[in-house]
């Protein structure tokens, strides 16, 4: 089973607030892979809006997304595309 990690700088100008967090989770939930998001010392479930919000990831903060499972590559590709949008 592939495990894919990616370190990303949040581009969204308001950070990962409620709406992008919900979009992130909607994408994450399409995949079978276990998805985690890490910021500083916090590691949260990438399929939980509450988890993502807990990170309080502002614009410019650096997070690590990791997917573990057979669709890990596709999951990371789609999640990264969302995080790199700067709207």
């Amino acid at each position: 089973m592939p495990r894919v990690k990616k370190i990303i700088k949040v581009k969204n100008k308001q950070g990962l607030h409620a709406r992008p967090a919900a979009l992130f989770v909607q994408i994450a939930n399409k995949f079978e892979s276990v998805i985690t998001v890490k910021k500083d010392k916090d590691i949260v479930n990438g399929k939980s809006i509450m988890g993502i919000l807990m990170l309080g990831a502002e614009k410019g903060s650096v997070i690590q997304i990791e997917a573990d499972g057979k669709d890990a590559y596709q999951a990371i590709t789609e999640l990264e595309a969302l995080l790199l949008k700067d709207e």
Partner: peptide, 17 residues
Amino acid sequence: SAGPHLKALASISRLLK
């Protein structure tokens, strides 16, 4: 007030997890 707003959302999520 994007910064404080995001911090408040984070605090609420942390409180209720």
